[in-house]
């Protein structure tokens, strides 16, 4: 395992800690900030393993766009001390079953990974190769993905029009 492998493991550990904090914080905004931290750690891991494009997507789209929208939405909803108290009570109970389920799924995964997964130096995958895939053999899937967005757009527009009173 080289330097980049060690860095990837360190980034992954940081990500785990951040995501655990995201689940256990009673304040929703704090929890979302921890999710951002977790996603950035994940992106650092991607960069260290040579997947620069995946890392950039992780930061730009997930941390930058999606979670940012979540934070804006949550901040527009007034969550005062009552919400904090309610979250504290909810976090106090009912965490055991989900934890057991997560471990039941993750344990065989961790045990079956071949040789720790980081043998040798990571191979960098340039964005050009992904682009060649998207515009070559995957072109049909990309085109139909745009049709998927049209379907979502039509549905959202139809639902929103009623609220406009039109």
């Amino acid at each position: 395992m080289g330097l980049s492998g060690a860095f990837a493991i360190w980034a992954g550990a940081l990500g785990l800690v951040a995501m655990a904090l995201a689940i256990t914080r009673p304040n929703v905004v704090h929890a979302l900030i921890w999710v951002v931290a977790g996603l950035i750690s994940l992106a650092a891991g991607f960069f260290a393993l040579g997947a620069g494009f995946a890392g950039a997507v992780q930061i730009l789209i997930y941390a930058g766009a999606i979670i940012a929208v979540f934070i804006f939405v949550v901040m527009t909803i007034d969550s005062g001390d009552a919400a904090l108290a309610r979250e504290r009570v909810r976090l106090g109970k009912g965490w055991k079953l989900p934890l057991v389920l997560v471990l039941a799924v993750l344990a065989p995964v961790a045990l079956s990974l071949p040789g720790g997964g980081l043998d040798g130096a990571p191979v960098a995958v340039p964005a050009q190769r992904l682009g060649a895939l998207l515009f070559g053999p995957w072109a049909v899937a990309v085109e139909v993905a745009s049709a998927m967005l049209i379907a979502a757009l039509l549905g959202a527009r139809h639902l929103a029009r009623r609220e406009g009173g039109q």
């Binding site: 139909v144 049709a147 998927m148 379907a151 979502a152 039509l154 549905g155 139809h158």
Partner: peptide, 10 residues
């Protein structure tokens, strides 16, 4: 699958 589901929801 998702195209079918999204169109059906709409």
């Amino acid at each position: 699958l998702e195209l079918v589901t999204l169109s059906l929801i709409a």
